[in-house]
Amino acid sequence: MKTNYTYGMLLPGLIIYLAIFVAPSFGSFYYAFTNWNGFQASTFIGWDNFKDLLDVDNISLVLKNTFIFTIMTTTLKIALGLGLALLVNQQLRFATFLRSVFFFPAILSTVAVALAFSAIYHPSAGLLNEFLRMLHLDRLTQSWITDPHLVMYSISFVEIWQFTGLHMAIFLAGLQSIPKDSYESVTIEGASGWEKLLYITIPQMLPNIKANLFLSLIGGLKVFAIVFALTQGGPGGASQVIGTIVYKNFGHGQYGAATAANLVLFLLIIVIVGILNLVISRKEVEV
């Protein structure tokens, strides 16, 4: 009786989840092969949406930008997040305060952050260039978000600044779960701090590394908000990513084409995450 009562309580939530998330997700597999515009009846057109996606102007640049953003932000957020976690895990006087400071940007609105960095990156009156001029480093001043060669790196830095603290928090949870006995035994044997990190800390934190890696990879491949809020894909389409292509198609009423682009993104995420999951899972078993 108790088991039936428990499952009965779960049923309403399950129905809502199936209706709002699962059914539309499976429906998108069909609409990706249609010319649906949201008003008229959809017509099956086969692979045309996917062929049109390949014909999008600078599609190679769109994919390049998406991967640059994903690789750069994932690498630095994990490296810096781990470094900050190791720092604030020490017996520091202001450790709790530092944790709050580092985590704070993650709770800010992405749009608010983008507006702030739009002012910071301004080529003539921006805080960053003004700071460089104050240090007599005028040669380093740049058009940070209007230079096609720099814009994706500038956007990536904003993402890194905002969410490194989130990854720090996940790493910190893993660090605090490692038994102190593990360190005491190797300390007696004369292990250095680097050896402790390499052979004790990192192997026992593989689940946390895995969570951070997947969180950052999926977020990077799906990036849209920070790009759109900062540059709207400009200048001249130099910062377009897959997410902005999806948005553009939806904005033009081309729902079938937008769904096709979203489906490509979904499959891309599944393949990349699936391969990495197999690799990391093998490492976890070895440990």
Rank of each mutant, 00 (worst) to 15 (best):
S143M: 12
H149E: 15
R139S: 08
I170K: 04
I160P: 02
M152E: 01
E159W: 03
T164N: 07
W144K: 12
W144C: 09
F163R: 06
F157N: 01
I155L: 11
T146V: 03
F163K: 06
I155Q: 01
S154C: 04
D147T: 13
Q142F: 00
Q142N: 15
T164P: 00
L140T: 07
F163Y: 14
S154F: 00
T146W: 00
L150I: 13
G165H: 02
L150E: 05
T164A: 08
F157Y: 10
A173L: 08
M168I: 12
Q162V: 13
A173H: 05
A173E: 11
D147M: 14
F157D: 02
I160M: 01
S143P: 00
P148M: 13
P148N: 15
I145V: 15
W144D: 03
I145G: 10
F171C: 13
M168N: 11
L166Q: 07
L172T: 11
W144A: 10
F163A: 06
L166V: 09
I170S: 08
E159L: 11
V158G: 03
E159A: 10
A169Y: 03
T141K: 02
S143H: 15
Q162N: 09
Q162T: 14
W161M: 03
F157M: 09
S156I: 04
R139Y: 08
H149A: 10
I145L: 15
Y153N: 08
D147F: 14
Q162M: 14
W161E: 03
M168A: 11
R139F: 08
V151E: 05
M168L: 13
A169I: 15
L150H: 12
T146E: 04
Q142K: 10
H167E: 09
F163N: 09
D147A: 15
S156D: 08
M152S: 02
L150N: 09
I160S: 00
R139P: 00
W161A: 00
I145A: 13
V151I: 15
M152L: 04
P148R: 06
F163D: 08
M152Y: 00
T164H: 07
H149Q: 14
S156T: 10
H149T: 13
I145Y: 11
D147G: 15
A173M: 05
V158P: 02
Y153C: 03
L172Y: 10
T141F: 02
Q162H: 07
I155H: 05
T164F: 03
G165V: 02
A169G: 08
G165K: 00
Q142I: 03
F163G: 09
F163V: 05
H149D: 14
I155C: 05
V158E: 13
H149L: 14
H167N: 14
M152F: 04
W144S: 11
L166Y: 12
S156A: 15
V151L: 14
